[in-house]
Amino acid sequence: MTAATVTARRAFTDTSFVAPGEQAEEEQLTLAFSFRNVTKQFKDKRVLQGIDLDVQEGQFVAIIGKSGCGKSTLLRLLAGLDRPTSGAIVYGAEAKEQKRTRIMFQEPRLLPWARVIANVEVGLTGIEKGEVARRNSQEILAEVGLADRGGEWPSVLSGGQRQRVALARALVGHPSILALDEPLGALDALTRIEMQQLLERIWIAKKFTAVLVTHDVTEAVALADRVVVIDSGRISLDLTIPVERPRRHASPELAFYERQILDRLYNR
């Protein structure tokens, strides 16, 4: 843990804005994954310079930073799409198998030539097949509110609906870690709020570890148990958001945390 993180945490305890009855984070102390002094270098540019990050199972972590700060790189490392230049990423017992980590992108990345249900079944590649796969895919489609759209082509769906299909595809294999790379970034403001609520509901129901990369501070504070701010390749703030769920958009509590994060982002 960097010095900045420690001070940030202490600063937070001093402010004593802790909502009562918040004990969920104390309950589960099994590690979902842990970054140990991870660096990543592309040619001569160091994108991540020594990231230390422990995330508990079932936690919802938001990673925030200005563009180019290395937050997406961090997520790609977590999902196993890239290898760290140095350091290690240790996964907890639950996420040992690579397929237990899923990533969702800003674009839905659906196969345009496969029906919606078949796209969801892609999430079960190498896990389940045939009848069972179809049934489970149908179930998860219903959970994201698209029960009756399974037989359609992705091209007829709206942007929000496509992203829901992508969410269903990511979740159908019961991942223990879900990495979200600005998945709501391309949606309009109202669809976005709807999707945030859907994401929260499903996260509560499925109890996976969620790591959300975003540049929207409001979104991070509304969804996450913990917000990590990354600035030029380092963690500059690690803040717990002990606000009870369901959270209300634009409540003064959330605004308080939002301001703290913005202050850190702009060094005010």
């Binding site: 690579q98 397929k99 999430g123």
Partner: peptide, 21 residues
């Protein structure tokens, strides 16, 4: 290439990747 990457992430074999993507 984003679709190809998606296929890889979901653990498609080379054969599946070719036939499905």
């Amino acid at each position: 290439p984003q679709l190809v990457e998606m296929g890889r992430i979901y653990g498609m074999s080379r054969r599946q990747l070719f036939l499905r993507v």
